[in-house]
Design a protein around this nucleic acid. Structure first.
Lengths: 335, 335
DNA sequence: CTGAAAGCGCTTACAG
DNA sequence: CTGAAAGCGCTTACAG
């Protein structure tokens, strides 16, 4: 096993003190240019790599951050884009991403109190006690963090504008002249769902469309709930379009329609929400709303770096609009 | 800012030395039970958390490992399952996963030489000079690592059995009595593709099927290559089934067939490879081969822990078979 | 069974 | 502009 090359070796090799080598590494302005050159040469020659642990221990930080994502993130391009963006910004600024799923979230507090991480980005969901406990503990140890998806207390957060998403879809529906609409919501009390519905009504109202021609049925975002509600409503009432508040529910609607011989988009238009992986591969491909996760990840990491390096909490509460992705399932221009 | 609680505080609080507190934390057998109890009580009382940096600096390791994945991993459930498995095993053993995409791979060597990580799991692809440079540098700093996907030199690796995958599909095709088969390969010289083709021929041969009725056309795994080859071959020659060596190429075949009025699976059976996200959502859903990424991730992390903790390289060269996922696209029993 | 002391490899006032 | 020295918070032979 080769001995470690340390700062002392570099110092000895060019007849300087460790302090000076340290100054060079930290770009201290007071060091003479000539001295710098000598030090860099020695570093090169000896293949010296500073020990990040020693550095962090004596007053620095590790430049590691934790990113907490849900336990289940398959089918959700959402998180992949988020992680990609975070990882890219992190790496370019000399930070490193430690990934933890929510089930292993307790480790994040450990890492924080052990000084292994200097910040965190946490996907927050509604009303999760374990998450909230984590937030206050992180707060106590003084590690900055940013919430993604849901606001909580006055912590900095970035989330998607669900009201805006609902409204965008309503404006699009109005443009296509879809007047009679069935909305399949998420579970009762789910804030995202409530916002999407409110936004949709807002958009319809703006266009002077009749809010009474909106039928609202409670689902739970699942495929089965989409199937069930479609099978209950469609035989009774005819609608121009369905707004399923998740792509999975929209998929359920599609399966029912296929069985019932209802043609999409000829007989019925359909929109989902989330732009899951499968949305564009369905037949017909599914119109949906896509969260700008790349932008969210980028902003989150940039904010976090600022919080870590400037030691101050910017008042950051960012809400970004989702993008409408119009596909075949709403291409019925005949109405 | 609250002052840090250190080992010295714990020691003082119970009238012992730091050495003893350290021994308790490291479960040294020589400490009296009574002493242990006192120390634990003080730790609890003072909310002490050991500083992992100091610990690692004085002879320990950080318990961080790096996982290197490709730049593009959307649409590939593959990597999500891999990461999930690695993260779970890691967390349960007190390790933490630092995620890096290949483009940011240089940071992994930095992390290794800075002592920030104690191991790595690296997705290896064929003939990548940058990756190979990383391997030898990691080797030089003495950080253990495991390759996923491709063997290289005598480094430990885990990969999927592409020969076995091709063979499994051939046996399935034979069972369905698909005799005339078109194989759409990957790019020329791609080892995975070569193996899949060889395996397929092996399986066909075992069943006594005629190898001359296999037509092989070179694609590049892309959707477009699948479309192009289908459009070139199918009008000229009629086949029972197509084995596209990637789901994307299979998708291209499907698109061509839809345009050309060829019905799958009635007129033609089709199988892909990879079980991408979209495979089960296509119409018809796509028969394909699924890599056991969860098992691979679990094994890789377990092996890595052993290498880190036992300081020896197990002779680990593991090859796992993929699983056939039979779906609608090959359900033509009429042949 | 426990403690005093040296050491891990850095940084950072404090001198000069 | 540079160095000597103390300090960051642990671990680990070495004594006793």
């Amino acid at each position: 096993m080769k001995k470690n090359v340390t700062m002392a070796d570099v110092a000895a090799s060019c007849g300087l003190s460790r302090a000076t080598v340290s100054r060079v590494l930290n770009r201290d302005k007071t060091v003479r240019a000539e001295t710098c050159r000598k030090v860099y040469a020695a570093i090169e020659r000896l293949e010296y790599h500073p020990n990040s642990l020693a550095k962090a221990l004596s007053g620095g930080s590790t430049n590691n951050i934790a990113v907490v994502i849900p336990d289940v993130w398959k089918n959700q391009p959402y998180y992949i884009n988020l992680i990609e963006a975070i990882e890219d910004v992190a790496d370019s600024r000399g930070y490193h991403v430690i990934l933890k799923r929510k089930k292993n979230m307790d480790s994040v507090y450990e890492l924080a109190s052990e000084k292994m991480i200097s910040g965190a980005i946490i996907r927050n969901t509604q009303d999760c006690a374990r998450e909230r406990a984590l937030f206050s503990k992180m707060d106590k140890v003084g590690i900055p963090f940013i919430l993604i998806g849901q606001a909580y207390k006055s912590y900095p957060f970035i989330k998607v504008d669900n009201v805006g998403g609902g409204r965008t879809l309503a404006l699009y529906f109005a443009e296509q002249n879809f007047r009679k609409v069935l909305i399949i919501t998420g579970p009762s009390g789910h804030i995202d769902s409530i916002d999407r519905t409110a936004g949709f009504r807002m958009g319809f109202d703006e266009k002077g469309f009749d809010l009474d021609s909106i039928i609202i049925k409670e689902g739970d975002f699942s495929k089965d709930s989409g199937y069930r509600i479609a099978s209950e409503v469609l035989p009774e009432i005819s609608v121009d379009a369905i707004f399923a508040q998740s792509d999975r529910a929209a998929l359920g609607v599609m399966l029912y329609c296929r069985e019932a011989g209802i043609k999409i988009p000829e007989d019925l238009s359909l929109a989902g929400y989330d732009d899951n992986f499968f949305a564009k591969y369905l037949t017909p491909s599914l119109t949906t709303l896509q969260a700008p996760m790349f932008e969210i990840g980028t902003l989150a990491m940039e904010m976090l770096v600022r919080m870590i390096e400037d030691q101050k909490q910017p008042f950051a509460r960012i809400i970004l609009p989702p993008r409408l992705v119009a596909r075949e399932s709403t291409l019925n221009k005949s109405l």
